[in-house]
Amino acid sequence: MKRAAAALLCCMGLAQADGVRPARDFLSPELRAQQDDPSRHPGWLWVDEGEALWRAGERSCQSCHGDVAAMAGVAARYPAVAADGALLNLELRIERCREEQQGAPRFGYESQALLSLTAAIAQRSRGLAMSVPVDGAAAPFLERGREFYATRQGQLNLSCGQCHDENAGRRLRGDVISSGIGTGYPAYRLEWNTLGSLHRRLRACSLGVRAEQLPLGGADYLALELYLAHRARGMPMEAPGIRR
């Protein structure tokens, strides 16, 4: 009897880890088709713009990295810990190159230029499996993100997992709740009428439970992004996604 219970517990644990499904599985058939078709996907405007920015200027991104095609697989390994110990997502990595390598001012989080470059680079990992390193220097960030994810927050007192693990697949008003893994970001959201970052989406979830909306690119959402990427390990990158 006891053993049966232990076996059951063990399987429930597994079922939860296995419960994460690709973001595209939760999209309506129309949106999924649109996400797969660049000619009907407004997000490609940003990809094109980002590829132009990649080549622009004397000290262009291209002058150091070569063709943007060389960025294949990079986004699937982000966020990552930089040499100085800071956790950087793709956006902040680009901002750092901009300051340190190009000697130019940051674009600013959620600026069209930064979203464009992020989309152009992330697109080169489309279809590749997420695989962020979470050991060594990344471990404390992962723990911080895991704790944030599991904490009930806001006046409505809900944790991320209460929606995205316990209720994935169910309907919340007009939305089908997904596994909340962020593999489609930056994404074109119909509600925004523009491309937006993962952190902008996270602020929407925080607002949804009437919790504090934290700064874009700040330490909490960065750690959370690392944890989401870890939950998404093995899942295909979908950026630029298209969402309701």
Binding site: Q155, R210, E212
Partner: peptide, 24 residues
């Protein structure tokens, strides 16, 4: 429970300042 507590103000974390100290 996943359902929010509609007439409670204590024991919450990171409540948006606009809603702090008020029940839903």
């Amino acid at each position: 429970s996943v359902m929010p507590a509609y007439h409670r103000v204590e024991g919450f974390t990171r409540v948006d300042p606009r809603f702090r100290g008020r029940p839903v």
